[in-house]
């Protein structure tokens, strides 16, 4: 008799599972940005540079990615998905530079059915005007959903 009580109970549990439905939400990071950090070189060490105020926008676009942002040590900028190079106008305090980023590929990176795809890039080269910027180092060529620093900009 005990066994049939157990069977009845477990059958009800089984029906409970049948009635269960899954919920769909995208919980993964979807933004793909190039992270640029600002640094200053001392004779003995490299230190993060705090920019007093910065303006950043894409060349050919009116809207700003950063507009008079103060006390900033790094920026995140999106690359074009349908091109293999992207230009940015960056104003550091009162000095303006142009940064051109060249990349090899625009790979479709599948996340899930809920999140869809994003486009990842591999940096080839960074070209810049030398007004505020003195040198650039590419630290991580892969630009994807992982938030890691890709480029270091030095002002001395």
């Amino acid at each position: 008799m005990k066994i049939f009580k157990l069977i009845t109970f477990l059958t009800l549990v089984a029906f409970g599972f049948i009635a269960c439905t899954t919920t769909e939400n995208c919980t993964e990071e979807k933004s793909v940005n190039m992270q640029i950090g600002f640094y200053t070189n001392n004779p003995t060490s490299t230190n993060a540079l705090n920019i007093d105020s910065i303006w950043v926008r894409g060349l050919g676009v009116d809207s700003f990615l950063y507009k008079k942002k103060t006390a900033i040590k790094s920026i995140l900028v999106p690359l074009k998905d349908l091109d293999i190079h992207t230009d940015y106008i960056v104003r550091f305090n009162n000095i303006t530079d142009t940064i051109s980023v060249f990349y090899q590929s625009n790979n479709q990176y599948y996340l899930s059915l809920e999140c869809g795809c994003v486009v990842s890039h591999t940096i080839d080269e960074v070209i810049f005007t030398k007004n505020f910027i003195k040198s650039v180092i590419i630290t991580n060529r892969n630009i994807n959903t992982l938030s890691t620093e890709n480029v270091q900009i030095f002002n001395n």
């Binding site: 676009v61 999106p78 074009k80 998905d81 479709q108 869809g116 795809c117």
Partner: peptide, 8 residues
């Protein structure tokens, strides 16, 4: 499958 790049 749609990929949007709002800024560009």
């Amino acid at each position: 499958i749609v990929i949007n790049n709002d800024y560009w």
